[in-house]
Design a protein around this nucleic acid. Structure first.
Length: 243
DNA sequence: CCAGACGTTGTT
DNA sequence: GTCTGG
DNA sequence: CCAGACGTTGTT
DNA sequence: GTCTGG
């Protein structure tokens, strides 16, 4: 789960970065449909321990993967918070390269009719406002930019209706702590990776046009038109041909 | 995550 | 069915 | 010792 | 690079 998210409210995101983190950041364009392997802003500590926005690719490529095909065997867009301390890909990032991923929604799909129908939902804070995912990043090199992944955890009651995992969302207070220097142990990690409270979130169905990663538009990210097309959207496609 | 492709030969 | 691209 | 993995999600 | 499996 959580392989799509949204960051569209330019003014809100600018204000959030400045007021919550003291970061001078302008997302420049709204991203309605952020997909794996795309470049997106993350917040990291710089050499002087100051929080800054930088660009990174969503799909963490671990330091041991070299060459052209690095990162192509499978996605590392999510990292299980339960496993992250021990996995070779994340062992060092969880200690030294934690980051924040600014967003204002994430998408989840409800699968119907044996997976032939996929209904997208947007999950937002309530009231809707920007937030950050807990992320990890890895350095880039001559041929590729830095890369990042988003931690996952068990779902809260709201997300559990659709999926059995959810991304780790940080309170503003925890976001500061997340990127503060310090060793991470099972005990110190635990308070960060608890499911974000369901009562502070809400969700709604979205236009299925969002399914296509190329649909990076306000129309595709708009709430589903519940006046009519629910039935048709949920109608199973024809079951093969009858000769 | 979902959508869309899924192939070879020739080759001025 | 399975892989790649976004 | 060497070889091979190194990851997550979904499963109406 | 480092860990796991054989």
């Amino acid at each position: 789960m959580c392989n799509r998210f949204r960051a569209v409210g330019r003014e809100e995101l600018i204000r959030y970065a400045r007021e919550a983190f003291g970061i001078d950041w302008d997302p420049e364009r709204p991203r309605y449909n952020i997909a794996p392997n795309t470049i997106q802003a993350i917040f990291v500590k710089d050499d002087e321990d100051k929080l800054v926005a930088t660009q990174a690719r969503w799909n963490l490529i671990p330091f041991f993967e070299k060459g052209e095909k690095a990162g192509t065997s499978f996605l590392r867009t999510n990292a299980r918070s339960e496993e992250v301390l021990g996995k070779p890909s994340y062992r060092e990032p969880i200690q030294k390269r934690r980051c924040l991923v600014p967003a204002d929604a994430f998408y989840e799909w409800e699968h119907l009719h044996d997976g032939r129908v996929k209904l997208p939902y947007a999950f937002e804070l309530n009231p809707t406002r920007p937030f950050t995912f807990a992320g990890l990043w890895e350095r880039g090199n001559e041929t590729r930019p830095p890369s990042f992944t988003i931690l996952t955890t068990s779902p809260n009651e709201l997300v559990a209706k659709i999926h059995d995992r959810m991304p780790v969302i940080l309170s503003d207070e925890n976001a500061h702590r997340w990127v503060a220097a310090g060793p991470m142990t099972k005990e110190t990690l635990a308070p960060f990776v608890r499911p974000f409270p369901a009562e502070k979130m809400h969700c709604h169905r979205v236009n299925p046009a969002i399914n296509s990663v190329r649909a990076d538009t306000a129309e595709a990210a708009a709430p589903a038109n519940t006046d009519d097309p629910v039935a048709s959207a949920e109608q199973p496609p024809a079951q093969g041909e009858l000769f």
